Structure formats: C-alpha cells, structure tokens
Amino acid sequence: MANDPLVVRARGLWRELASAPVAFGAEGDVSVVAAPASRLGPPGWVGVVVLGGAAVVTAPTEEAAARVREALAGLAAGELADPAVLTSMLPIGRVLGPAALAYVSEAAFRPADPGGLSVEQLPAGHPELTALERSAGAADADEAGLDEITSPAFAVRLDGRIAAAAGYRRWPARTAHLAVLTAPGRRGRGLARVAGSEAVRHALAQDLLPQWRARVPASRRVANALGFTDLGTQLSAEPA
C-alpha cells in the first residue's frame, strides 16, 4: 500500500502539514516528532495521522514528544486511530476525531448520475450558502467547512432554495479538501452525492488530489459512492 500513488500523494500532504522533518515509516511504524507549528491539530495539541498503515505523530515541544514517544512505544500505527488507546497511554483532555481520510484518483472517480437534478455554480461566500449553513446548524456547518472553500460552490436547488452544496478548499501539496453540506430535511436523497460529484470533477480538472475527511458515516458513504478509498485516519488530542 505504501507505493500506491494515492498514498504517496496523501503522505506528502501530511508531511508538509506536520511542519517538521518527519516521514511515514514501514507498515505499523509510529514516527513522533516535536513540531510547534504542526497543522495536524490545533496549536499545542498532539496530532496523529495514520496513512497506508504507518503513523506520524506531532507534539508541541521536544519534552512532550519524548513523553509521547515513550508512552506509545510498542504500539502499532493502526492502534492510534482509537482515542481510547491514546487516553489510556497519555494524560489527555479533549480529543477531536477520529476522522477517516479518503482519496480518489481520476481513474477511480465514479461521477454521480444527477437524475434530472441540475447543479448550478455559485461563488464562495454567496449569501445562499450562508443561509444553507444556518439551516444546518453550527455543528454540521463546522463539520462541513463550506464557509472555507476557495473553489466555486456547486449547488442543487429544490423548491427555489439551495438544498445541498459542495466545494473545496485548496490545501498544500495540490490537494483539494472537499466540503459538502445538505439541508436538514433534504438528506438521504442523493443530493450530497450530486453536488460533491461536481466539486470532485472540478478538482480533478485542476490536477488536484481530492481529499474527503469525514467522521459521520453518512458522509463516508457519499465519498465511497464517488469512488473514494479510505486510506487512513486523523485525530488530535489536547494534553491534560
């Protein structure tokens, strides 16, 4: 798996986000590094990314990295995707995640059949996108991240209102971080798949690597339907 082109590109992204010299080792390996500027989690937190069977862990200081390295010694990379394992080994407060990291190549992409739905393009930050986020509530809107996209938004309208929309934020290493949101009461009808399909198509046309990060099973199912493959996990933990 380590030689899979998707894994290679995804690992390149997260190495860059680690903001410190670190590499994914062989399958099962856990590499821990001090990285005060790490973007694997909020500032000052421990960040964990498992990709292709190997893990990279960042800690805010050299002292913290030494403690983490000692605590996690002997653990396999896959075990770090379980928050219960981390909290049993380290003094940890809050945990964000785990979130599945999924990616798709142009060859594996399975565009959604719109089934008579039309998809319109809106600029990022359009007032109707803000209205969609308000209708979804703060928790779902934050999870989707539609307010952070740098691409156009691809929206499905029902009864005159935007029912679902998708786009992506341009991340380092030529990565397109997908954002998809569906209005409450409109879910389960395939709208996210139709809107997300157009966002993925746009990203691939720009030669970007589409990344779908999701904690919610329904979101993961949409990604899988579009051809995405789960390659790893991300989570972060606040030192107690």
Rank of each mutant, 00 (worst) to 15 (best):
A55K: 05
A64P: 06
V56Q: 09
G52R: 09
G52E: 05
R69K: 15
A65T: 11
R69F: 08
R67Q: 15
V46R: 08
R67E: 15
A55Y: 05
E79Q: 15
G47Y: 02
A73M: 08
A55Q: 05
E70T: 15
G52S: 08
R69A: 15
R69P: 06
L51P: 06
T58L: 02
A77E: 10
G78P: 07
A71G: 14
V46F: 03
A59T: 13
T61A: 10
V68C: 12
G74A: 03
P60Y: 04
E63N: 04
L80E: 07
G78Y: 03
E62R: 14
V46Q: 00
A59P: 09
V68H: 12
R67F: 10
A59I: 12
R67D: 15
V68N: 11
A76M: 00
G44K: 00
G47Q: 02
T61K: 03
V46L: 13
A54D: 11
G74V: 03
L75Y: 09
V50R: 03
L80Y: 07
W45S: 09
A64G: 06
A66K: 14
L72N: 14
A65H: 06
E63T: 13
A76Y: 02
E62L: 14
G52C: 06
A64M: 10
W45R: 03
W45C: 01
E62W: 07
E79K: 10
L80M: 10
A65V: 11
E62Q: 14
V49Q: 10
V68L: 11
V56C: 07
A77S: 09
A65I: 11
G53R: 02
A77Q: 07
V68S: 13
A65C: 12
L51D: 05
A76Q: 04
L51M: 09
P60F: 11
V68G: 14
G53W: 06
V56G: 10
E62C: 08
E79Y: 07
G53N: 08
A65W: 09
A59G: 13
A66P: 13
G52F: 09
V48W: 06
A54W: 06
W45L: 02
L51H: 04
T58D: 01
G44T: 00
V49F: 02
A77L: 05
T58C: 04
A55V: 06
A76E: 07
G44D: 01
E79T: 04
L75H: 12
A65Q: 10
P60G: 06
A64H: 05
L72M: 14
E70I: 09
V50P: 02
L80K: 05
R67C: 08
A76S: 06
V50A: 03
